[in-house]
């Protein structure tokens, strides 16, 4: 049997974005069960990755003309480069949907329901007749639900727990922070989007208001997250530093006129956003085990220093960056 299609299936799980979704699942799990490694976690991870492959496959088929117009000719867009046909991607979507459904079975009815919702949103986002991706007000909201809320809920399922009131504030903060990030995803594609009449928030509002909205979202999201997890002061300071880094990059994005510079600013802001998520995971895992605040702060301090080195390397030397922004 040819290994081309299985390799294509593996390629459609774009690791960076898939890892972001997985992080939100881990936050849900950490909030409810602390440090837990189980077969359910493995099954949920496989199901989540497979469902993401469905999303990318369906989206690549639906947006092939726009992707061509935007010049997305790298290995992650096999349909645009000619490395795959629409039939190949339909095959990957079908296989990935099957894999997601099978992997969700050990998680019980709740797991099957969450993965079923993920698959439904994946298809509805790109495919007719609903096509949320063409509705500029709904697209970022649906993406936030698909990337954050559903994986978080899956994390609760893996923890064998149920929705609690403590989840509301944390999930709200995570969603707002992610919304601030996802409304910038169309910066790279705006020329193709405009040429094909695709309406996006960026094209409707313009760059400056979109950046302002993103700054407001980042500030609000980080503040809500801090309130939700009630960390020791040192960890709150670490989150504040990460937030400042995000805002710095968003302000740079607002001034930037060169596309490469814009993408690097978005990438650096996303890197600082990831640092916030890692801090949240670290604190939730340690506090679930009754770790002293001072020791947890020390750990978060080291993580923040590592993140800061990585962030500053990108922010101060954008010329060294390799653009690999696929969102």
């Amino acid at each position: 049997m040819s290994s081309r299609r299985p390799r294509l299936l593996a390629r459609m799980v774009r690791p960076r974005a898939a890892f972001t979704m997985w992080t939100f699942m881990i936050i849900g799990l950490a909030r409810h069960a602390g440090p837990t490694i189980s077969l359910d976690l493995v099954a949920a991870t496989i199901a989540l990755l497979a469902s993401y492959a469905v999303a990318t496959s369906v989206n690549d088929i639906a947006d092939v003309e726009i992707d061509r117009a935007n010049g997305l000719r790298d290995a992650s867009r096999p349909l645009v480069t000619g490395a795959a046909t629409a039939g190949d991607l339909r095959w990957t979507a079908t296989m990935a949907a099957g894999a997601a459904a099978v992997a969700s079975l050990p998680l019980g009815p709740a797991g099957v329901a969450v993965i079923g919702l993920c698959l439904a949103v994946d298809v509805a986002y790109s495919a007719a007749p609903i096509r949320f991706s063409r509705r500029w007000t709904l697209a970022p909201i649906v993406l936030t639900a698909a990337y954050v809320a559903l994986p978080y809920w899956l994390g609760i399922v893996v923890a064998h727990d149920r929705w609690r009131s403590v989840d509301e504030l944390l999930l709200c903060g995570l969603c707002v922070l992610f919304f601030a990030r996802i409304i910038l995803k169309d910066v790279r594609d705006r020329l193709g989007d405009a040429a094909h009449g695709r309406s996006t928030l960026l094209l409707r509002l313009g760059k400056r208001p979109t950046c302002a909205l993103s700054v407001a979202g980042a500030l609000a999201g980080c503040a809500i997250i801090t309130l939700a997890i009630a960390p020791p002061p040192a960890i709150a300071v670490a989150i504040a530093l990460d937030t400042a880094a995000i805002v710095w990059m968003l302000l740079r994005l607002r001034r930037e006129v060169d596309l490469r510079g814009e993408l690097i600013a978005i990438g650096a802001a996303a890197r600082a956003g990831n640092a916030v998520l890692i801090t949240v995971v670290a604190w939730l895992l340690l506090s679930a085990q009754d770790a002293p605040g001072a020791q947890a702060s020390m750990l978060v301090g080291v993580l923040t220093v590592v993140s800061a080195v990585s962030f500053l390397a990108l922010a101060r030397h954008p010329e060294r960056a390799r653009i690999a922004y696929k969102a």
Partner: peptide, 16 residues
């Protein structure tokens, strides 16, 4: 070594 430090910081948070 950075990973080792992070890992052991998490461990000593629970077992000083």
């Amino acid at each position: 070594h950075v990973l080792w430090i992070v890992f052991l910081l998490a461990v000593v948070a629970l077992w000083p």
